[in-house]
Write a protein that binds this DNA or RNA. Structure first.
Lengths: 218, 218
DNA sequence: GAGCAACTACACCGCTCAGTGTAAATTCGA
DNA sequence: TCGAATTTACACTGAGCGGTGTAGTTGCTC
């Protein structure tokens, strides 16, 4: 048998139904279209066209529009979570100058919104759909997305506190306050990146937020 | 002429086109339906039925669906702004115990979200629609809604600082930080009131937020 | 080559919906 | 009562859309 193993993945491999590359294309297209148009306005036809697949194929991979939406939201949250974990590792694992490290961390975290515009556009769509989403699914979203940032940040802050650089008894709350004073402020003013804010203004807000945070916890 | 002046307002008075009571009914119904269903999913048919008017009448008063949406959003913001102004006056005009007054103010302000569920539901819809709204209209919204809270809160904080109870050089920033640490935290966790949070938890969060704020500015 | 799974390319169905037009009815002032 | 403005109650148009079915095509294994 001298057949080269084709790089192209197709049926017949021992995988779930459907070709993975098609599923990936659909998910990526869906993120873009849902992000751009919101849930209701986004059409499955448009997603199929964007993915370069037939609509029939979309329905072969996902039960319906809502399942597609939620799958894409949660997958996107996983990606963003991984990116933010790296940002945390880069800036918070080793503290040289606490204030500067927190500022750099927060600026990079703000920048993550720009790096994942589709995802955060989709976040806005999802929040608007909150009352139409079954509670367990909404819970799954919160756990996959917004909650993970705090769960990952708190241990870093606790370690920093253990080194005597911060005084805190509730690391979760401290993590929340840091995020509120920096990321949430920017996100509110930019509608999660939809409306640009000048970089100097972002830096000002983040710097003031970090100083305020340190005022509380140092 | 012994005709009593009828309380009923109808055509023929020297007013803008259309009966004001019809316009009011449409606006109120629109707020409810947009809030419940979001912009795209809300139908003009449903709004007309909810208002008890014909769809023809809706279009007699508002150019189209988008104009209706934005008019309702801005009118709602004016109402909420007035309510919050009262809350500020009640709690911040005279300071007895600064911490407690700030806590009470913030708790009442959180409660305002519950008092205006339709409006804040519509806020979620509007934020999701941010990229589809013409920039000038979005600006009008920001000025009518989110921005006014800060503009009204900052002078109170400045006065409190003048009495030596707070130390701050940037009252706008202080106002923003107070809102972030209290209202924004709750709103994020409840999706602007869509998902209930137990009252004790709300009180905890607000109390911790106010203490943090005072730690920064006192 | 045969058989099977997945995909493509349509067509279709039933429904919804923003916006418009029109005739009849209602309201109000002169 | 008349006339004008507004509203009501439909009907209509053209478009869109979630989801489904089906026949033909493609790719892979035996």
């Amino acid at each position: 048998m001298t057949n080269l193993n084709k790089a192209r993945t197709g049926p017949r491999q021992h995988e779930p139904r459907g070709w993975p590359e098609k599923r990936r294309a659909i998910a990526e297209a869906a993120r873009r279209v849902f992000g751009r148009d919101g849930y209701t306005r986004a059409s499955v036809d448009a997603i199929a066209a964007e993915a370069g697949v037939s609509k029939r194929t979309v329905y072969n991979h996902f039960a319906d529009k809502e399942q597609l939406f939620l799958a894409v939201a949660i997958e996107g949250a996983d990606e963003v979570t991984a990116a933010i974990a790296q940002i945390m590792d880069r800036h918070l694992r080793k503290i040289v100058d606490l204030e500067q490290d927190l500022i750099d961390f927060s600026l990079d975290r703000v920048a993550a919104v720009t790096a994942f515009p589709d995802h955060f556009a989709l976040v806005r769509a999802l929040e608007a759909e909150a009352t139409h989403i079954p509670r367990p699914m909404l819970r799954a979203w919160i756990d996959a997305g917004p909650q993970t940032a705090h769960l990952r940040l708190a241990p870093y802050l606790r370690k920093i506190a253990d080194r005597g650089l911060l005084r805190l008894d509730d690391a979760d709350r401290a993590a929340r306050h840091l995020t509120l004073l920096t990321i949430a402020d920017i996100n509110q003013q930019t509608f999660y990146g939809a409306v640009p804010l000048p970089q100097e203004e972002i830096t000002d807000i983040v710097t003031a937020g970090v100083k305020a945070f340190l005022h509380i916890y140092r």
